[in-house]
Amino acid sequence: MPRIAYVNGRYVPHTEARVHIEDRGYQFADGVYEVCEVRHGLIVDLTRHLDRLDRSLSELRIAAPMSRKALTGVIREVVRRNHVRNGLFYLQVTRGVARRDHVFPSASVKPALVVTAKSTDPKGIAAKNEKGIKAITVPDNRWDRVDIKSVGLLPNALARQQAKEEGAQEAIFIDVDGMVTEGAATNVWIIDRDGFLVTRPADHGILKGITRTTLMDVAEKLGVEIRERRFSRAEMLAAREVFITAATSICFPVVEIDGQVIGNGHPGETAERIRGHFFEIAEKIAI
């Protein structure tokens, strides 16, 4: 079955999906996006993803492309048409198509909306959870407003490419003070030497991940104490456990960073425990 995309009011074959050359997302990265998991035919944490989308749009002063009810209908239809049972959908909103100019176009220019969906291989994710992944650290050279889920991801792409070239699966950003911010596409967590679950506060310097937020709910239910505080690269390397979270991976254990083994070199029990209970807590909406 061919893939189907939604592009500005039309459901079209994925291979024929097009946006205009003067779309501001293409020319200025003037847009935002969300990625949301589909698991066993259910959309995971949709409400929180759409809440964050609304916030990102508001921060960039981009109007919502349609009502939330209508957008939810489009998302469901794209997932259905692509027969996705386990996978994800990608949603992108840009300021729209207008003559190239750095200042915003007039209010008559409508935001552009694209939604796609694809299946993923649960076995591949399970293998990474079983073995753990490797990561590298890189200087954080991104713009200051990483709290906005903007499509301007060139530093993230360069970091991920460097990780791949070094045989790793994620790059972890380190700020000018030597403190961990987040991964190129993930939030970072550690179990510190005192046994606390630690992650950087989401008030500045990182994106407030949806999986991160739901994981906090899971940890609370399990009685795992969380400390939101900054932590250094050195503390991360000395941690009992390190893991990363994202909608597409939930909770990947990190067993090696910059060539140094983390803990005992095997996935830790905290990550496994949280992952095992995650979908008991996460919102699940039928397609």
Rank of each mutant, 00 (worst) to 15 (best):
V84T: 10
K128Q: 10
G9P: 01
I133A: 00
T47N: 06
M1C: 09
A127C: 14
G124A: 13
D23M: 10
M236A: 03
I257S: 10
S56V: 06
K149N: 02
F231K: 00
L197D: 08
I250L: 11
A202G: 13
E220W: 04
T72L: 05
P122S: 06
A159Q: 05
V32T: 03
L113P: 00
I148C: 04
I43Y: 02
T186K: 04
I125R: 15
I4E: 06
I226E: 06
G124N: 15
R240A: 11
V218R: 02
T137E: 04
L237V: 02
A98L: 08
I285D: 06
V74H: 03
A282N: 04
A17H: 04
I21W: 13
G132N: 01
L53C: 02
P139V: 05
G205V: 01
V176M: 15
M179I: 06
E77C: 10
F231L: 00
Q260P: 13
V19I: 12
T199R: 01
T245W: 05
S56H: 06
I190Y: 07
R275L: 12
D217L: 11
L113A: 05
I281Q: 03
V79T: 08
E37V: 15
P122G: 07
A17L: 06
V109Q: 03
E225K: 11
E16R: 13
A159N: 03
A127D: 12
G152E: 12
D144C: 13
T181M: 01
R200F: 08
T199W: 02
N129Q: 12
G73E: 09
E130C: 08
N129W: 12
V7S: 02
A219G: 03
A202V: 14
L91P: 09
A135T: 08
L207E: 04
D175N: 14
T270Q: 09
D177F: 06
V198N: 08
S56M: 01
R99S: 10
V79A: 03
E269P: 11
A247G: 14
R229V: 04
Q162G: 11
E280L: 09
D177L: 08
R275D: 11
I274W: 00
P65G: 10
V103A: 14
I174Q: 01
L153S: 07
G265M: 02
A98S: 11
V151S: 07
R85Y: 10
P65M: 11
A29S: 10
